[in-house]
């Protein structure tokens, strides 16, 4: 039994092996982009929204409201980044119920890539918000002694993000596969339903943690009175 789909090579392109994880990621990308294009292709202000457009508006506004609850300075770029994380991970985890489909989030390479993206995004958002010096200053706060701990903390946050998501999704997929062999009907259905719930919760946790990390990196270390009252 394979624990990861990275070893399943689907085809090779210019000598580079393309595994099942990458192909499944592409499938998810096509699904998300295609659905978005189909729903938003004839978007006009004077046309009342249909049920699909309303569904997308509810999802996007839900993500936006979650970000607004966390960060003081909500920005469109943070929505693009955290929203895409959530949608990608949630779609990937929901496709767990499709027979023969290995969710890319069940691969440590995918979760590591997402964690790496978060690891890079945090300083980028921080530098954009505070400036290069301002962001580096956060590593020596509250004192210089905390510098190594802050650096370690930065990396462990990424690793914990990757391992948490990978462990939850991979374990769900493995357990479902084992139970399919032991008790072919009842238990796999229950476990898959549980996996759907776990997948959505993990997508939410991953996106929220990424937003929190980015928000903490962009937050003003000396907030004004109005900002304190807001928080």
């Amino acid at each position: 039994m394979e624990l990861t789909s990275d070893s399943t090579i689907v085809f090779e392109a210019w000598g580079i092996p393309v595994n099942s994880t990458i192909v499944n990621t592409w499938i998810i990308m096509v699904l998300l982009t295609g659905a978005s294009m189909l729903i938003t292709r004839k978007l006009r202000p004077d046309v009342p929204p249909n049920r699909w457009r309303t569904m997308l508006e509810v999802i996007v506004q839900g993500i936006q409201s979650q970000i607004q609850e966390i960060t003081i300075r909500p920005a469109r770029h943070l929505l693009y980044f955290a929203g895409t994380l959530f949608l990608f991970i949630a779609t990937s985890n929901l496709l767990l119920v499709v027979p023969g489909f290995h969710p890319p989030t069940a691969s440590l390479s995918t979760t590591a890539a997402l964690a790496l993206a978060v690891l890079v995004a945090v300083p980028l958002f921080g530098i954009t918000s505070r400036g290069f010096g301002g962001y580096l200053k956060t590593y020596i706060e509250p004192s210089v002694i905390m510098l190594p701990f802050n650096i370690i903390s930065e990396f462990t946050r990424g690793i914990s993000l990757a391992i948490r998501l990978y462990g939850n999704i991979m374990s769900g997929a493995v357990i479902a596969a084992i139970l399919l062999g032991v008790a072919p009907f009842f238990f796999p259905v229950v476990m898959d339903m549980l996996g759907l719930l776990t997948g959505l919760v993990q997508a939410y946790i991953f996106a929220i943690l990424a937003t929190v990390y980015i928000s903490s990196a962009t937050a003003d270390p000396h907030p004004t009175k109005s900002e304190k009252e807001t928080t």
């Binding site: 990275d6 580079i16 092996p17 595994n19 994880t21 990458i22 990621t25 592409w26 990308m29 998300l32 982009t33 978005s36 294009m37 938003t40 978007l43 457009r53 997308l56 508006e57 996007v60 469109r76 929505l79 693009y80 980044f81 929203g83 895409t84 994380l85 949608l87 990608f88 890319p104 691969s107 390479s109 995918t110 590591a112 890539a113 997402l114 790496l116 993206a117």
Partner: peptide, 25 residues
């Protein structure tokens, strides 16, 4: 290699969703 590919895939997906989902909505 998969990690690198997935990072690229994720960035492309961010751009695609920004172009076809977030902005229009």
């Amino acid at each position: 290699i998969t990690v690198a590919a997935q990072v690229v895939n994720f960035l492309v997906l961010v751009w695609l969703l920004k172009r076809f989902l977030y902005r229009p909505i």
